[in-house]
Nucleic acid binder design. Structure first.
Lengths: 126, 126
DNA sequence: CCGAATCCAGTGCGATACTG
DNA sequence: CAGTATCGCACTGGATTCGG
């Protein structure tokens, strides 16, 4: 999972950033963690459409890249908490800028998708 | 190509942004166009590792989302130029922030990948 | 020089089921 | 509550080929 078989192209810094937050849920997880949601079950509650397996994978990658920190309390029942590292915090302004831009556009975006789909869609799925 | 069979999750604005610049070369193309590289053949020269087909696909998606504008001059030989739309320009600050952060980290990132790969890599890629 | 069609491999991620 | 293993599908994007 951690190995990269195909050489990635880092011609621009964005590729690096993508490598880190490019997963489907990573940015959202990052946001949640930054707002104080720390425990796996809590995160899962907030993102019920993703399975715990996937969340674990994404969290593990974030941890791997040094963005978040995982603390395990060897208790019964098990207790795990995630938190942003200093490095992860340095990323938050960028994340927030991205989120702000996207949020401002989401309405138009959905509309655009509907409009164009009338012109372009060939298979509506199935 | 334009249809989305699987419902995307736009719980945060970043997903929207990803939808727009999430392609492998899109951000780089955007950067190049913003710096004045306009013609397909020029872009292809700058990104020789991608085939023209792929570049065309990515450019088409950028155009689809209203980020760039394509002008066709019906000449012989054919002449095509891309340019940023006003909307595309509104995206540039975000792009630049992303690029800046990633660029600042690219060195450490490569190192990290090497270090960890000693621990995790199973196939160094044929 | 510009673009589209077909074919195909790698990967991400979702479902389900199981362990401590 | 937390984490992992196996399986399978859909999507991106590469190669190649063909048309204006």
């Amino acid at each position: 999972m951690y190995e990269k078989k195909i050489p990635k192209d880092f011609s621009c810094g964005i590729s690096v950033l993508m490598e880190i937050i490019g997963g489907k849920w990573k940015s959202y997880l990052l946001f949640l963690i930054s707002t104080g949601v720390r425990r796996p079950s809590e995160l899962h509650r907030k993102v019920p459409t993703a399975t715990s397996r996937v969340l674990n994978l994404q969290l593990k990658e974030l941890e791997f890249h040094g963005i978040i920190c995982k603390e395990i309390y060897p208790e019964v029942p098990p207790h795990v908490e995630y938190s942003l590292t200093a490095f992860g915090k340095s990323l938050m302004p960028v994340i927030n800028a991205m989120d702000a831009w996207g949020s401002g556009y989401v309405g138009e975006f959905q509309q655009l998708m509907r409009q164009k789909s009338e012109l372009y869609v060939v298979e509506t799925g199935e």
